[in-house]
Amino acid sequence: MSEADTMMWEARAADGRLDELLGWADTELVPWLQLRPDVTKYELFSAADRLVVIVRFDQGTTPLPDAPTVLLARPAHQWPFRRHGGGPPASSL
């Protein structure tokens, strides 16, 4: 089995702080990801009080930075995964 190449990062925003958490992601996390030569793709998703970030690396994974604790209801969770294929591009469905 090959090593993990994808990191999933999930944070629950403190009450009423999701917009600020998204702002932190836009101004701090995204630039950090863009400067890393080993990052091949990243996506950010939000729903209700959550922010989820999926990052694909060339090989291996690196933990993502911590968001400011004042913006979080609890510490963010991170899980490394190994990509296992994928479906056709959305445009071909």
Score class of each variant (00 low, 15 high):
Asp5Ser: 00
Leu33Gln: 07
Leu29Pro: 07
Arg56Ile: 00
Trp24Ala: 02
Thr62Glu: 14
Thr6Val: 15
Met7Tyr: 04
Arg82Trp: 04
Gln34Glu: 15
Ala4Glu: 09
Gly16Leu: 10
His84Phe: 14
Gly60Met: 01
Asp15Ile: 06
Val55His: 00
Met1Cys: 02
Ser91Phe: 07
Ser91Asp: 09
Val70Met: 03
Glu20Ala: 14
Leu18Pro: 02
Leu21Gln: 05
Leu64Trp: 05
Ala25Thr: 14
Phe45Met: 04
Glu3Met: 08
Leu33Cys: 10
Pro88Trp: 08
Gly16Pro: 12
Gly60Cys: 03
Arg74Leu: 07
Arg56Glu: 14
Asp66Met: 13
Trp9Ile: 08
Asp5Lys: 03
Ala4Arg: 00
Ser46Cys: 12
Pro80Gly: 03
Asp38Cys: 04
Leu44Tyr: 00
Val55Ile: 06
Gly85His: 06
Arg82Phe: 03
Val30Ile: 15
Leu29Gln: 06
Pro88His: 13
Gln59His: 13
Arg36Val: 07
Asp66Cys: 07
Glu43Thr: 12
Phe45Arg: 05
Glu10Ser: 10
Trp32Asp: 12
Ile54Met: 04
Phe57Ser: 09
Ser2Arg: 11
Glu10Phe: 05
Phe57Tyr: 15
Arg74Val: 03
Glu28Ile: 10
Asp66His: 13
Ala90Pro: 10
Leu33Asp: 09
Ala73Asn: 06
Pro88Ile: 08
Gly23Ile: 07
Asp15Trp: 05
Trp9Asn: 04
Thr27Gly: 11
Asp19Phe: 05
Val52His: 04
Ala67Met: 06
Gln59Phe: 10
Gln59Met: 05
Asp58Lys: 13
Gly16Ile: 11
Ala11Met: 02
Phe45Val: 02
Pro68Gln: 00
Phe81Trp: 14
Val55Asp: 00
Ser92His: 04
Ala11Cys: 13
Arg50Cys: 08
Val55Thr: 12
Leu71Asp: 03
Val53Thr: 05
Thr27Asp: 13
Thr69Lys: 09
Ala47Leu: 01
Lys41Ala: 15
Pro88Arg: 11
Ala76Ser: 08
Asp58Pro: 00
Arg12Asp: 01
Leu93Thr: 11
Met8Cys: 06
Arg74Phe: 02
Ser2Trp: 05
Asp26Leu: 10
Leu71Ile: 06
Thr27Cys: 01
His77Phe: 08
Ser46Asp: 14
Gly86His: 08
Thr62Cys: 07
Pro68Glu: 02
Val53Glu: 04
Pro31Val: 09
Arg12Leu: 07
Gly85Asn: 08
Pro65Arg: 09
Phe81His: 12
Arg36His: 12
Leu22Lys: 15
Leu51Arg: 01
Leu51Ala: 02
Gln34Met: 15
Leu51Trp: 02
Val39Ser: 07
